[in-house]
Design a binder for these strands. Sequence first.
DNA 1: GCAGTTTTTGCGTTATACGAGATTAAACGC
DNA 2: GCGTTTAATCTCGTATAACGCAAAAACTGC
Lengths: 252, 252
Amino acid sequence: MQNRDISSTFVKGMTVLKAFDDSQAHMTISEVAHKTHIDAATARRLVLTLVHLGYLKKVGRNFSLTPRILVLAGSFLGANQFGRLVQPILNQHSAEIGRGISVAMKDDNKALLVAQSSLTSTRMTFGFTVGSHLPLLHTAMGRMLLALEGMDEVERIISEISLEAHTSLTTLDRGKLLESIQLAAKLGYCVVHGEFEHGVTGIAVPSDASGEFPSVVAVSDVTESYEAEADLKTVVVKMKRCAAELAQSNAL
Amino acid sequence: MQNRDISSTFVKGMTVLKAFDDSQAHMTISEVAHKTHIDAATARRLVLTLVHLGYLKKVGRNFSLTPRILVLAGSFLGANQFGRLVQPILNQHSAEIGRGISVAMKDDNKALLVAQSSLTSTRMTFGFTVGSHLPLLHTAMGRMLLALEGMDEVERIISEISLEAHTSLTTLDRGKLLESIQLAAKLGYCVVHGEFEHGVTGIAVPSDASGEFPSVVAVSDVTESYEAEADLKTVVVKMKRCAAELAQSNAL
DNA sequence: GCAGTTTTTGCGTTATACGAGATTAAACGC
DNA sequence: GCGTTTAATCTCGTATAACGCAAAAACTGC
C-alpha cells in the first residue's frame, strides 16, 4: 500500500502505455507483463482498456500504438502555440542558418525534442522527431539544458546518470562533463563534437523564452561544415537571433 | 459496473489526461471534474497521479501538461520510422512542390496530422502541428481519408457527424459531401476550396503506403496560387510522386 | 500429436476508488 | 478590514473494483 493520493491502477496503466516505446513497438500481453513487471492478468486488462480507448490496436496476438496517441501531444503543442508561433520562427531561421533547427526541453535525465524545422532543400535529417529522447550529457542541447538548471541539480544528474559511450569521442569523465556544462553556462552556448553521433557537431543556445519550461535551440551538422572557427561563431549569432525572437513572441 | 476486462479507473485516468486539450490547457481540479463528469475527489487523485508521473505540473491551483506527454508520441513516430524515412521524403518533395506537405491519418471522425514538412523559406504555416485534429468532411485531407474507407463507413460518418460551418463556403449538404468523397475516390485526389479556412485551398492524395494505417499526403495554399487549372494538376502529379516514394520506402 | 507457452477465466482477498461531508481557501460585499 | 458566501480542496469510512493466484483453455512450434 502506498500514498492514498496516487492511483496505482492508473500508474500501472500509464506504465503499460509507456512500455510501447520505439525499442518494442509490437508486444504481446505476456511481453507487456514481463517488461512492466505487472501480472499478466492485470496487464491484459490494462491493454484491453487501451484498445477500447483506441490508443492500442491488436493485430494477431501483438498490440501496437495507434496514431491517436499523437492527439495528446497535439494538446501540449497547441496549448503552447507551437504551430502558430514557434514553427514559423524556426522555419525562417532554419533557412537563414542553412540547417535544420530543433527545440528541446529537459525531461527527467533526457533531452526531449519538442519542435523541429528541417531544411526542405536537403534530405538530410538525423532521424529524430518531436518526442525523441536524446542524452543529456553527450549532446549540445542536453548540456545547454543542464546549464540552465541550478548547479546542484547538474551535479546530482551527473553523479546519478549512467554514462554510455555512443562514439569513440564520448566524454565519460564526470568532471570534464561538469566543466563543459559550466562553460556553456558562462558562454551562453554549447558546442559538442561527435560525442553522440560520429562526425556530427551539435550547437545549442538557450531559447531565452520566459515560458513555463526552460528550452534550448539547437542545430546539428557534419563536423566539417564548421571547420572555420568563424563559421561556428556566425551560426551561434544567428541561433541567438532565433532564440531572441522566440522569447519576444511569448512562445514557449 | 461494466465489462470486467476494462479497467474503469484507467479509463477515467485517460479521460482526465485527454481533458487537457488545447481548448483548456490550464485547469483546476474542479474544472477537470466538471469537464470529465468525474467526481472531484476521484479527479483529484487522478490528477495527482499524473503529476506524480510527470505528465502534469501544478502551478498555483492550476494544472497543465508537461512536455513529457510528447514522449508517448515519440514512441509512435519512432516505431513507424517517421524521423528516418518519412520526414526526409516530405522535405524533399516539399521543396519540389514549393509548399508545405502534411501527412494525415483518420482518427475517429477527425483527420489527424501525423507528419509535416513546412517550407523553410517562408513564415507561412496554418498553425497546425503533429497531433492536430482537423475536420474530416471539410478538408481535402479528411475527404481523401474517407475515400479510402469503405462507402458504408463513409455514409455512417456523414450521417452521424455534426456539421459546422467554418466559412461561408463550407458544404453543409450531406449529399454533396458524399458526392465529393466519391469523386475523390474515383479521381485519386481531392481538392477543397476555402471550406475550412477562408481563401485556402487544400489538395490531398492517398499515400499509397501499405502500412498499418491508411494515410494521405496533403498540401495547402492560398486559393489564388492555383488559379490556373494546370498549376493544380502539376501539384497533384508531384504529390503523387511523393506518395509513391513513401509507399516504396515501406514507411507508414 | 505432444510439450511448451501464452492467454483467458474464476474467485477470494484486500487494497483502492468512491463520494458525502469536513476543511480550507478565495471572492465579495459592507 | 472583516464577516459572509461561495467555491475548491482534502479527509475518511465504506462499498467495490482491482489484484494476482491458480487452473483451464487456446494457441505455437516442433
